[in-house]
Deep mutational scan, measured.
Amino acid sequence: HERALMVNRLQKLTRMLRVHPDPKWKQEQQELIKRLK
């Protein structure tokens, strides 16, 4: 369940980064990718 939330968050971040590349979001995205591996 928590994994699904993280995947959701990651997808949302990816969409937001396409619109507005924010370093903070980029960092969070990298963190999520690490944790999901």
Score class of each variant (00 low, 15 high):
His1Phe: 14
His1Ala: 14
His1Leu: 11
His1Asp: 14
His1Gly: 09
His1Arg: 14
His1Met: 12
His1Pro: 10
His1Ser: 13
Glu2Lys: 09
Glu2Tyr: 08
Glu2Arg: 06
Arg3Leu: 15
Arg3Trp: 12
Arg3Ala: 04
Arg3Lys: 10
Arg3Gly: 04
Arg3Thr: 08
Ala4Cys: 15
Ala4Asp: 14
Ala4Pro: 05
Ala4Ser: 07
Leu5Asn: 13
Leu5Phe: 09
Leu5Tyr: 10
Leu5Ile: 13
Leu5Arg: 15
Met6Ile: 15
Met6Arg: 04
Met6Ser: 04
Met6Gly: 03
Met6Lys: 03
Met6Trp: 05
Val7Met: 12
Val7Ser: 02
Val7Ile: 15
Val7Leu: 15
Val7Cys: 15
Val7Ala: 07
Val7Glu: 13
Asn8Gly: 11
Asn8His: 12
Asn8Ser: 13
Asn8Glu: 15
Asn8Leu: 13
Asn8Phe: 08
Arg9Trp: 12
Arg9Pro: 03
Arg9Glu: 05
Arg9Asn: 02
Arg9Tyr: 09
Arg9Cys: 12
Arg9His: 04
Arg9Ile: 10
Arg9Gly: 04
Leu10Pro: 00
Leu10Asp: 02
Leu10Met: 02
Leu10Glu: 01
Gln11His: 12
Gln11Pro: 01
Gln11Phe: 08
Gln11Val: 13
Gln11Leu: 14
Gln11Met: 13
Gln11Ile: 15
Gln11Gly: 06
Gln11Glu: 11
Gln11Asp: 09
Lys12Ile: 13
Lys12Arg: 09
Lys12Asn: 09
Leu13Cys: 02
Leu13Met: 01
Leu13Ile: 09
Leu13Thr: 01
Thr14Trp: 05
Thr14Phe: 03
Thr14Asn: 12
Thr14Tyr: 07
Thr14Leu: 08
Arg15Pro: 01
Arg15Tyr: 06
Arg15Asp: 13
Arg15Val: 07
Met16Trp: 08
Met16Phe: 02
Met16His: 02
Met16Leu: 12
Met16Val: 01
Met16Arg: 03
Leu17Gly: 01
Leu17Phe: 01
Leu17Pro: 00
Leu17Arg: 01
Arg18Val: 05
Arg18Glu: 09
Arg18Tyr: 04
Arg18Gly: 06
Val19Ser: 10
Val19Lys: 13
Val19Glu: 12
Val19Gly: 10
Val19Phe: 11
His20Met: 08
His20Arg: 08
His20Asp: 13
His20Lys: 11
His20Pro: 00
His20Ala: 07
His20Phe: 13
His20Val: 06
His20Ile: 09
His20Gly: 02
Pro21Thr: 07
Pro21Met: 10
Pro21Tyr: 15
Pro21Val: 07
Pro21Trp: 15
Pro21Leu: 06
Pro21His: 15
Pro21Arg: 06
Asp22Val: 05
Asp22Ser: 08
Asp22Thr: 07
Asp22Met: 05
Asp22Trp: 09
Asp22Ile: 04
Asp22Lys: 13
Pro23Gln: 05
Pro23His: 03
Pro23Asn: 05
Pro23Glu: 06
Pro23Arg: 04
Pro23Thr: 04
Pro23Leu: 05
Pro23Lys: 05
Lys24Gly: 07
Lys24His: 09
Lys24Leu: 09
Lys24Thr: 11
Lys24Gln: 11
Lys24Ala: 10
Lys24Arg: 11
Trp25Asp: 04
Trp25Pro: 01
Trp25Leu: 15
Trp25Ile: 13
Trp25Met: 15
Trp25Ala: 06
Trp25Ser: 03
Lys26Glu: 10
Lys26Asn: 03
Lys26Gln: 08
Lys26Met: 10
Lys26Asp: 03
Lys26Ile: 13
Lys26Phe: 13
Lys26Gly: 03
Gln27Gly: 04
Gln27Phe: 11
Gln27His: 13
Gln27Trp: 06
Gln27Asp: 07
Gln27Ser: 08
Gln27Lys: 12
Glu28Met: 06
Glu28Tyr: 04
Glu28Ile: 06
Gln29His: 05
Gln29Leu: 15
Gln29Trp: 12
Gln29Pro: 00
Gln29Gly: 02
Gln29Thr: 07
Gln29Tyr: 14
Gln29Ile: 15
Gln29Glu: 06
Gln30Asp: 07
Gln30Met: 11
Gln30Glu: 12
Gln30Val: 08
Gln30Ser: 08
Glu31Cys: 11
Glu31Tyr: 07
Glu31Phe: 06
Glu31Gln: 08
Glu31Trp: 10
Glu31Thr: 06
Glu31His: 04
Glu31Lys: 05
Glu31Asp: 12
Leu32Tyr: 01
Leu32His: 01
Leu32Pro: 01
Ile33Asn: 03
Ile33Tyr: 05
Ile33Thr: 03
Ile33Gly: 01
Ile33Arg: 06
Ile33Lys: 04
Ile33His: 02
Lys34Pro: 01
Lys34Ile: 10
Lys34Arg: 12
Lys34Gly: 06
Lys34Tyr: 06
Arg35Val: 09
Arg35Tyr: 09
Arg35Asn: 06
Leu36Asn: 00
Leu36Ser: 01
Leu36Pro: 02
Leu36Phe: 03
Leu36Gln: 00
Leu36Thr: 01
Leu36Gly: 00
Lys37Pro: 02
Lys37Tyr: 14
Lys37Phe: 14
Lys37Met: 14
Lys37Asp: 07
Lys37Thr: 11
